[in-house]
């Protein structure tokens, strides 16, 4: 049982890292990113391909963050010129472009056949030990990301971030550069998503384009909305609830055998939809948000 809980915690931790990145984008700068899964995919494939080529895991993880952040640069430059609603659609389109490139460039990504046999770290610790070590890694990286975001928010740069979100015009009149700030934040958040992708790739050990669809982005948004924007603890909580909803249906099946079987996918989808609508309507700050109404 414990080991199964460990597996759930690892998946939850990966979602939590993704949500931390998204929270940095939206919660701290107001940039609306609906292409989060694109950065996740870049990180996952980058780290998988490098480690499959024999490079160490550290190099894979570093490359995952770096590539996601670098791709975020031109997108960020475009993003800051666009209206909110256009930005949402452009980023969504961006993640689809990434997915289509992964699907089409078979020589590199294996295309629709996917990438099997991605190495998993901590092989020397035995089956059980490797799992715990991996969870440790996921938790540690979450902690680091948590601290990073926290430190960013408390630093002079962070005050700038908050100022950008709250009043961009005033900031410009003070001679600050909100564009540079936004772009740097956008890149850091994308890097976190890339890291989450690397963690996912080395845990599941198999990647295919079907795993990087826009639905993942919507899940992450849901986690953020439930938890509460702008506050990291809320983000982690939201990711936990998301995994509970996704995985909870197994227990429902145990409790009510036979019924609901094929309808389960639809019911899961409906519950996620309902959560989104109800939280937006009645609890827009999430369970623990920073109290800023958006």
């Amino acid at each position: 049982m414990l080991s199964y809980l460990v597996a759930i915690a690892i998946i939850g931790g990966i979602y939590s890292l993704l949500t931390l990145g998204l929270n940095l984008h939206y919660g701290f700068t107001g940039l609306i990113n609906f292409g989060h899964v694109g950065f996740f995919a870049l990180g996952a494939y980058a780290s998988a391909l490098l480690t499959l080529a024999g490079l160490p895991f550290a190099a894979g993880f570093a490359a995952a963050m770096l590539i996601a952040a670098l791709v975020a640069l031109p997108l960020g430059l475009l993003a800051i010129r666009l209206r909110d609603d256009y930005l949402a659609i452009v980023t969504l389109g961006f993640s689809e472009i990434i997915r289509i490139v992964i699907t089409s460039e078979e020589w590199l990504t294996g295309g629709v056949q996917g990438l099997p046999g991605i190495p998993r770290p901590f092989g020397g610790l035995g089956v059980g030990g490797a799992e715990y070590a991996y969870l440790g890694l996921v938790v540690a990286l979450n902690g680091l990301a948590f601290l990073l975001v926290h430190r960013l928010a408390a630093s002079p740069f962070g005050r700038l971030i908050k100022a950008v979100r709250d009043n961009e015009v005033a900031l410009v009149s003070l001679g600050k550069d909100p564009v540079g700030v936004k772009i740097r934040v956008f890149m850091i958040g994308a890097g976190l998503a890339g890291l989450a992708g690397a963690l996912y790739a080395h845990y599941i050990t198999y990647l295919s384009p079907e795993q990087v669809i826009p639905l993942v982005t919507f899940y992450v948004w849901m986690a953020m909305i439930i938890g509460g924007t702008g506050r990291n603890a809320g983000v982690v909580l939201g990711a936990g609830i998301l995994v509970l909803i996704l995985e909870g249906s197994r227990f429902v099946r145990d409790l009510f055998p036979g019924v609901l079987d094929t309808e389960m996918a639809s019911i899961r989808l409906a519950i996620i939809g309902l959560c989104l609508v109800l939280f937006v309507l009645f609890r827009p700050r999430g369970l623990i948000g920073d109290g800023v109404e958006r």
């Binding site: 080991s3 199964y4 597996a7 759930i8 998946i11 996912y200 845990y203 599941i204 198999y206 295919s208 079907e210 795993q211 996704l246 995985e247 197994r250």
Partner: peptide
Amino acid sequence: QPDAGVLAAKR
């Protein structure tokens, strides 16, 4: 789905 399959196999 691969990730759901992994969790189910774990369980």
